[in-house]
Amino acid sequence: MRGGGRKIASASGVSGIFWVLVLPYIATMYGRRISFLIVTLNSIIGNIVFYCSSTVLQIIVAEAMLGAARSCINTVSPMIVAEYTSPQYRGLFLTIEAVCVFWGIWVANATGTFSHWKNIGIIGIVFSVYTSTALFWPESPHWLAAKGRVEKCTSAYRWLHSSSNKSKAELEFLIAGNKVENSGNVITESNKNNLAVKRLTEVVAASNTKEWTRITSAVELLLLVKDQEKYAELTAKLL
């Protein structure tokens, strides 16, 4: 019995090795959303198999399938949190993600202790169905920008972050940065600085038309400028 318990406990970890290698590739080639939906579908099926299991072998198979979700926590999920949320909230969401892992372990153990162990499968099915809301997500703006799909990137970014001046500035810098990367150049602090300076120069040139919303966006980009002399020059012109 003890040997069987060890096999069951290790099944998800062993299968997770495969998923750790595959999920980042899928996320890079086909998008974050697709990779997350694959994990979600796999988790629904795995939890159904777990609930319907009547032998140790069937439970091991179910646990092996659920290794995808375990691997997703360390691969695709951090990508999604980083690319779908605003910078000021990323730390909070990453902390919540880590806490939820341990909370889920506690719930599973408590459920198995005070009720029938198959109820763990029911809870897993409910939460897996909940994560299927990813069907309604847009694709990651960062992935779309990296693939050169500017229109879809813009639409997705606005869906996630609204159309505020700050969001517009971040979106423009995201697209510009990926254009440099796709051109074969290395993204460095110097390149980022040059992109910011170029954008600011354009805004200053248009400032006589009183496009104040563009000037507000430029103020956000001023923080990216490392050249102090250029910073002072552009600030003086904007003011």
Rank of each mutant, 00 (worst) to 15 (best):
L174F: 01
M79L: 09
A232F: 15
W137C: 09
N165V: 08
S155E: 13
E220G: 07
A205C: 13
N74I: 04
A110Y: 11
R214K: 13
L135D: 11
N191P: 02
I60M: 13
N185C: 10
N74C: 08
N185T: 12
I17K: 08
S140R: 01
G67N: 00
N178Q: 10
S155N: 11
S190K: 15
P24L: 04
L238V: 13
S128Q: 02
L144Y: 04
S162G: 09
T201V: 13
N165A: 12
R149I: 07
G177I: 14
R199A: 05
A176K: 15
P87F: 04
W212M: 12
C100K: 01
H116Y: 15
G67S: 03
S12K: 09
F93G: 02
L238E: 12
A236M: 06
R214T: 08
C52A: 13
I44D: 03
N182Y: 04
L174M: 05
N119D: 11
V49C: 08
A98L: 05
I60F: 14
A82C: 05
K226Q: 12
S162M: 09
L23S: 01
H161N: 06
A69S: 09
S155R: 10
I60E: 08
L238D: 11
A110T: 15
A62I: 01
A108D: 14
L23Q: 01
A156H: 10
L41A: 13
A98Y: 00
I8F: 12
V99I: 12
V101G: 02
T201F: 08
V99N: 02
S128C: 04
A134Y: 07
V197N: 03
V101Q: 04
T113G: 14
V180A: 02
Y89S: 07
F173W: 07
G13Q: 12
S35F: 00
L92Q: 12
S86F: 07
L224S: 11
N42Q: 08
E172K: 10
T235D: 14
A68L: 05
V81K: 00
I59N: 09
A69K: 03
A145Y: 02
G184E: 04
Q58G: 13
M79W: 00
L234K: 07
E83C: 06
S183Y: 06
T95H: 06
S164P: 02
G67Y: 00
T111F: 06
K192C: 05
S132D: 03
R33N: 06
G46T: 04
S10G: 10
V22F: 11
G91P: 04
P138V: 04
S190N: 11
N178H: 08
N208S: 13
V49S: 07
V39P: 00
G16E: 06
L66G: 01
F93D: 03
V225Q: 02
R33G: 03
G3S: 14
L221R: 11
A156W: 04
I34W: 04
E63Y: 07
